[in-house]
Design a protein around this nucleic acid. Structure first.
Lengths: 351, 351
DNA sequence: CTGTTAGCGCATTCAC
DNA sequence: GTGAATGCGCTAACAG
């Protein structure tokens, strides 16, 4: 046990064991009333409390280690200044970055963000108030499946959707990535390198973001006068992607010269699959990813991929939610994506 | 203003726009008093409320879509049933899994978990109540630097440390990984393959978990009668690790035949470095990681690494915190680690 | 300029 | 077995 810290002059113990100091304690210590304390610490005393008193209050509060009781404040205000960020998988680097962005602007506005990892993307999310049981002022939902939305939206809470279908008529405000454009960029990149036989390794996940990817690839190939890419569905893990890539590369007919993958994880699997068949990347087959995860530059060769402004979408999402909470409208946003060409794609082999 | 309720048979709107129903509304709807509602929904009406009344209450509550106001409940109970999980980096898969484990047992006990990503591991964490401003009953801190702990520990809140020095005298309860043993296993694995010149690519991070790794490697090599491994410090990213590996492999003297890395990320960089020098893995040089991230099997060849029971440590951490909150002691825990031999390590080349 | 008063929604005594 | 009263800590009205 450490000695009690120097109970010399400095006053009562800061965060010590017993009970936490209340605003009344601060008031007593400063020789003022509770209301004054509230005003001073709430930063709304411009012309109502004397400078001297204000300082006294702050000193007393600091001395006592006073922390306002959030529960009481929330109860009184009817708001918690807390937003819930619902993500399909916390394990994914992308969502961590979305969180960081959201938390940043939240913080600047005195808001907090708590995470609710919706179980496995599948099925309607369980009660968000079970796991992240904080009282919540609003919800930001990222990349959610359609039905999962229902469980959330029903909460009657202000809602912002990230990376989700913006064309739902009465739907919530959305902040989106220009996913379609991103895939157009990849497709054009591959076409520009002379690839004519491109296989699409697609994520087997039924969310807007992945549906759009398939459409974009198809449309862009059609625009170039090419037949639709043979498509292989794969779960979002390396092993499944590996198998999908092997299947794509060994299918009857001429072998694809490029594997366009919905995601960096899939691309990692695709690389393994190609190599397992003795194919070199990018000389024999080009592979492209999507997301620009740390993974994409950990691989060898580094992945050509598309950078997603994850923090930015988080920031915009929180900004939109704040607008909603303030009764202002939140116009839809679409953020541009940039192609990051690296070593995993090269000119199509001749023949 | 909505009409007073009960105009149509089915009753008032569930989660509709206006105001949320309170327990008093439920009481009125069920024709009982507020106290009865509280008892029924709090599941403590064993012999105090009649079965019929209880059902009526539950029906009314369901009908109205009643949700207890957490703020009010917390205020009354003096506890929030919420724990704060402090992690140095949310972007890391490991912490996501720790969270999942903690959330699981929390959920089973009616607790919630909110995350606080302590900025960049460096410097004392900023006020945890700024970002995750929920009221908190206790804190679980994972893999924190020593000084960051201070800011947290001062909160006077019950605290459990994960993956941190268990030998601090008056320190908080700890739940630990047998990190030292894990590195001993790796070291022995390499020695068993005939490697005698092992370089250590170490994380340039001053936390307990990494200090222990270095000590364990050193001790194990000494036990085998070998000189200490040449050590290269690297930031926890692929590029830095690549450079460190190149430096290690091109240092004067005989070339190391194995790179023992503190972490899978470092190992990924090490692989790139080795390959950049024209060395094959594992024929020319073996590389080992630590963590068993998804990355480790995305690489080619797959990494020999050590699996960390991340979910388990999260579960144990929450369990310990619950014990603390219940006034019970939380005995220290140490979880075993298992070596996962894969393709990135092989017999030392002769010569 | 400052103090007094009231009430947010809930869980809990204590009467009945 | 049930209802009426009380207070958690805070902030927003008003009164001085």
């Amino acid at each position: 046990m450490p000695e009690p810290d120097t109970d010399a002059g400095s006053g009562p113990r800061p965060g010590a064991g017993g009970t936490r100091p209340t605003s009344r304690d601060v008031a007593r210590a400063a020789g003022v009333s509770q209301a004054t304390v509230s005003l001073v610490l709430g930063d709304k005393w411009r012309g109502r409390v004397s400078e001297r008193t204000a300082r006294a209050v702050r000193v007393a509060a600091g001395d006592l280690g006073y922390r306002p009781n959030l529960a009481a404040r929330s109860l009184r205000l009817g708001a918690t200044r807390t937003a819930l960020l619902v993500v399909p998988a916390l394990t994914h680097e992308y969502f961590a970055r979305v969180y960081a962005g959201a938390a940043e602007v939240a913080d600047a506005h005195g808001f907090g963000v708590v995470l609710y990892p919706s179980p496995a993307g599948v099925g309607p999310a369980r009660d968000p108030f079970g796991s992240a049981r904080t009282a919540i002022d609003g919800v930001i939902a990222s990349s959610m499946a359609a039905d999962a939305l229902a469980a959330i939206g029903d909460g009657g809470l202000p809602l912002v959707m990230l990376d989700s279908d913006p064309d739902v008529p009465g739907g919530p405000p959305t902040v989106n990535l220009a996913v379609a454009d991103g895939l157009r960029q990849v497709t054009r990149h591959l076409l520009g390198l002379g690839h004519r036989r491109v296989a699409h390794i697609a994520a087997d996940v039924d969310t807007w973001t992945f549906r759009v990817r398939t459409e974009a690839v198809t449309a862009e190939l059609a625009a170039a006068g090419l037949p639709p890419a043979p498509r292989r569905l794969s779960a979002l893990d390396v092993t499944a992607a590996r198998d999908a890539a092997v299947a794509a590369l060994t299918a009857p007919g001429p072998r694809p010269t490029a594997l366009l993958c919905d995601d960096d994880i899939l691309a990692a699997g695709a690389c393994k699959g190609a190599r397992a068949l003795g194919l070199r990347i990018p000389q024999d087959v080009s592979v492209s990813g999507f997301d620009d995860l740390a993974l994409s530059s950990a691989l060898d060769p580094e992945l050509t991929t598309v950078r997603l402004p994850a923090e930015s979408i988080g920031r915009h999402g929180m900004t939109a939610l704040l607008a909603l909470l303030a009764g202002r409208p939140a116009p839809p946003v679409e953020l541009p994506l940039t192609l990051v060409p690296r070593a995993s794609t090269a000119s199509a082999p001749r023949g």
